[in-house]
Simulated scan of single mutants.
Amino acid sequence: MSEQTAPDRYISFCGIECDAMADELIAKLEHNISRQTGAQQWRDYFTQKRVEQQKMGRDNLHFIGNQTNPLYEYFEDCGDELATALLYQIEQECC
Rank of each mutant, 00 (worst) to 15 (best):
G38K: 00
M1Q: 09
E17F: 14
T68F: 14
L86F: 07
P7Y: 02
K49I: 05
M1N: 14
R35K: 14
Q53Y: 08
F63E: 02
Y74G: 07
K55G: 06
D80F: 06
D80W: 01
Q67C: 11
A83C: 10
G65S: 02
G57V: 04
T5W: 11
E93C: 08
M1G: 13
A85S: 13
D23Q: 13
H31S: 13
Q36Y: 12
R35Y: 11
L87Q: 03
H62C: 12
A22W: 07
A22V: 07
D77M: 07
A22G: 05
C18W: 11
I16D: 05
D19E: 14
A27S: 07
Y10C: 08
Q67F: 12
G79K: 02
M1D: 12
L82I: 05
G79R: 01
I11K: 13
Q48F: 12
M1R: 04
L71V: 10
D23C: 03
C78Q: 02
T47C: 09
C78A: 04
M56H: 10
D77K: 01
I90P: 12
E30C: 08
I90S: 00
D59E: 07
E30V: 09
R43K: 11
E52L: 14
E93F: 14
L82H: 11
T47W: 06
R43P: 05
R43V: 06
L87N: 00
R35N: 15
L61A: 01
N66H: 14
F13S: 05
A39T: 11
N32A: 14
D8R: 00
V51K: 09
D59F: 13
I16Q: 09
Y74K: 01
I33V: 15
Q89K: 12
W42C: 09
Y45A: 00
R50F: 05
L61M: 10
G79D: 08
G15N: 02
G65T: 00
Q67I: 05
L61H: 11
Y72V: 12
E73N: 11
H31N: 12
P7H: 01
G38N: 01
Y45P: 03
C18G: 00
C95P: 03
K49G: 02
A39Y: 08
Y74P: 04
N60I: 07
L61K: 04
A20F: 13
F46P: 05
E76L: 12
T5D: 09
V51N: 03
F13M: 15
N32R: 10
Q48A: 06
G15I: 00
Y10F: 15
L86H: 04
F63D: 03
K49H: 03
I11W: 08
R50M: 13
E93H: 13
Q4A: 06
T47S: 14
